[in-house]
């Protein structure tokens, strides 16, 4: 049997789409014995339409509110059928994870089903044309916050620190080898895992399509995005931010921050610093079970 692609190359995702890159890297890591679930979201473009699908593995398009519950059922049914070698991969955006899907995710994590939940975070409802979500960064313009979002983003990673995830990580399209390493680790675990991946979206964040990876890298470097993992009750920080003032450059490279005032700019930087300081202190603990 010739080696087959696990994801079609001819799909109508936008140019420079980070979500597609994450999915591709995920399947590259997990291989063909994987069942995936996507909610209606940008990832539904991978699921396809009509009699066609982009996935080379079995997939279900769930409803937006309860992908993790669908995954719970699949995971338990696989156990019943003795198909223990199959990985269940949830693949949802920030809306399906932070907002409407949060309750279902919290339930699935608490019940301890074996599944990997990947959140590709493009910081807004991008598939419906860029409306703010609770993951949208303070100050970002979206179609529902044209003058810039007034509230800080929900910190899902910190929220989930006190849930019984057997493995939790953040990752970025700016560092695909790191994402693959984390996903491989997650797939080896016998319980719920969560990987939160930053997915800078050229269409929604308004930067040139060739800059997707550069924006993601700058997010890591500037501390706008923190790379860490939690395993066995211990947090490991993967990358130390170089200089929080680089956030200015990060904001300037994206037109969605075109209306950010100097005050908001200060707040964004201060919050990023605060997040990192909190994380550093948490990383000194080893009791986050």
């Amino acid at each position: 049997m010739p080696e087959l692609d696990l994801l079609s190359k001819g799909m109508t995702t936008c140019q420079g789409c980070p979500m597609e890159l994450i999915a591709r890297a995920a399947l590259d890591t997990l291989g063909p014995r994987t069942i995936t679930m996507t909610p209606p979201s940008c990832a539904a473009i991978l699921t396809g339409s009509g009699d066609e699908t982009g996935w080379g593995i079995p997939s279900v398009q769930t409803v937006l509110m309860s992908l993790p519950a669908f995954a719970s059922g699949v995971s338990e049914a696989l156990k019943i059928r003795g198909m223990d070698d199959v990985t269940v991969m949830g693949f949802a955006g920030d809306g399906g994870t932070f907002d409407i899907g949060l309750q279902s995710l919290s339930g699935a994590i608490e019940r301890g089903h074996k599944a990997v939940f990947i959140c590709y975070n493009n910081e807004a409802y991008m598939n419906t044309g860029n409306q703010r979500s609770s993951a949208t960064t303070l100050g970002a313009s979206t179609k529902t916050t044209p003058t810039g979002k007034k509230e800080s983003a929900k910190n899902i990673d910190f929220m989930l620190l006190h849930t019984p995830l057997v493995y939790q990580a953040t990752a970025s399209v700016g560092n695909i080898p790191d994402f693959k390493r984390k996903l491989k680790k997650a797939a080896s675990k016998d319980g719920p895992c969560f990987i939160h991946v930053l997915a800078p979206c050229p269409s929604g964040w308004k930067f040139p399509t060739d800059q997707t990876i550069e924006v993601a890298k700058l997010a890591i470097k500037s501390g706008a995005w923190l790379q860490f993992e939690r395993e066995d009750g211990k947090i490991t920080i993967n990358t130390k931010p170089t200089d929080f003032q680089l956030i200015n450059q990060y904001l300037d490279g994206q037109k969605r921050f075109g209306r950010v005032t100097p005050e908001i700019r200060e707040r964004i930087i201060a919050e990023a610093k605060g997040r990192y300081e909190t994380l550093c202190r948490l990383a000194e603990l080893d009791c986050l079970v």
């Binding site: 069942i35 679930m37 279900v60 769930t62 409803v63 509110m65 309860s66 519950a69 669908f70 995954a71 719970s72 059922g73 699949v74 995971s75 338990e76 049914a77 696989l78 019943i80 059928r81 279902s104």
Partner: peptide, 9 residues
């Protein structure tokens, strides 16, 4: 939702 997943499996 979980039954849909399980029944599909």
């Amino acid at each position: 939702s979980s039954l849909i997943g399980a029944s599909s499996t």
